[in-house]
Design a protein around this nucleic acid. Structure first.
Lengths: 227, 227
DNA sequence: GCGCGGATAATTGGATACAATAATACTATT
DNA sequence: AATAGTATTATTGTATCCAATTATCCGCGC
């Protein structure tokens, strides 16, 4: 069990950029994830390693690796001897995920306050406007919406927290899509998110945390009821 | 001629307890995780798939699967073409993890209130006592400590939340071990945790949430400074 | 028509083999 | 002696093959 300790290699954060040809595992990972995020692969659908392998012209082995990683991300569920399916979250699961996201993003927002100046406030308004402009284009709007929240969380300078919230958001993606697709209008332009901007502008950590938390929990029931 | 049967591990690997033939992936997963939790495998140590496979009498393939899952759990880090190492978290990382655990467990505690009656209160006291009795046995105390917190979180009836907090606790395990090992005494028996019990007894959600959160953040700096 | 077995097909799990990559050791050259 | 470049070794990544499990289909009996 014991292994010689050796200095861990430097964290390669930029390997994506220099690698033009993605490795088979990465191809498979991106391919499947894209399918889930885009909505092509709906919750419950099977993801046979064979068909993915064939589609990408690789063997099943890297696909399996990719599926394991996606399982860790909560994007797919792997049943023993029965393969992988796009993760399906129940009514209660969705509630839990939203609750978790709420407290985590609220925490992120609170911690972000320390790093917010005029430039950042401007950026918030900018992001809100971009969101509003995409109000009639659902896929685009979802992206912009995520941009807004991710930016706020990113200002906390907490990469692990960021990663966590992104992960949960990814898990919820299919259900948010469904929810927004059924709404007549996505949001009275900017209204909800302006409240967050105002809270941030106030500079009060408790207010910020509470506002973001409430925002995330806003229509938890409506979303969960779709499942 | 008849093909030789799949070689059942001829060597009776002194394996944990009587288990009903865990699949190779599960064996590898448990084996590595156990090594990390027990402290045998310290952060930064390499975990070559070959040696694990050999130790368990299986091939490298299921070990790879296990490592991928552990990567998703945050227990190991996999560098492309350079294998897996036990996940190493920096000073800042540890702070983030503790912060996340704080808000998530605080949320869990708040939600648990709805499911707490006399029987549960008794169980809390029971668990605290077990913890106190193990005060001179570090590994055991850590287990009891986790038992206490996991029980509280479990009462929220939020499996995903539970899983998340357990995951984070696992990531932090090596650093907590280090922290507690350096402490003269683990805790004025029951003192800190009695405060949580009292808060729960009060039945006030805000108090509970705040208390649990404060408890988790109690010595974040001391722990993080060890890295 | 409906359920129940048993054969058959489809799909995953695991092992071996080989290729690719990174780490290490070595040699030659300055 | 230091270093750069090369050869060697160790380890990981991928492909292919076979076994095992699960799902499907079909005939049979009620």
């Amino acid at each position: 069990m014991t292994q010689a300790k050796r200095a861990a290699p430097a964290r390669a954060t930029a390997w994506v950029l220099e690698n033009k040809t993605l490795s088979p595992v990465e191809q498979a990972y991106n391919y499947i994830l894209q399918g889930i995020l885009s909505g092509e692969l709906a919750p419950g659908m099977r993801v046979p390693s064979e068909s993915v392998a064939e589609a990408l012209g690789i063997s099943r082995m890297p696909v399996r690796d990719a599926l394991r990683r996606l399982e860790g991300d909560g994007a797919v569920t792997i049943y023993a001897n029965r393969g992988a399916t796009v993760a399906e979250y129940s009514h209660d699961d969705v509630i839990q995920l939203i609750e978790m996201r709420a407290v985590l993003e609220a925490l992120g927002a609170r911690l972000a306050l320390a790093h917010i100046g005029d430039a950042e406030m401007e950026e918030f308004v900018h992001l809100r406007e971009r969101m509003d402009r995409a109000v009639n284009d659902l896929p685009n709007w979802i992206t912009r919406h995520d941009d807004f929240h991710n930016y706020l969380t990113s200002l906390s300078r907490r990469p692990l927290l960021m990663r966590q919230t992104e992960r949960i958001r990814m898990m919820l993606r299919p259900y948010f899509r469904r929810h927004h697709a059924e709404q007549q209008e996505l949001e009275i332009p900017g209204h909800e998110h302006q409240k967050i901007i105002d809270a941030v502008a106030s500079g009060n950590p408790d207010v910020v945390e509470q506002t973001v938390r409430a925002h995330a929990l806003a229509n938890v029931e409506k979303i969960a009821n779709l499942t």
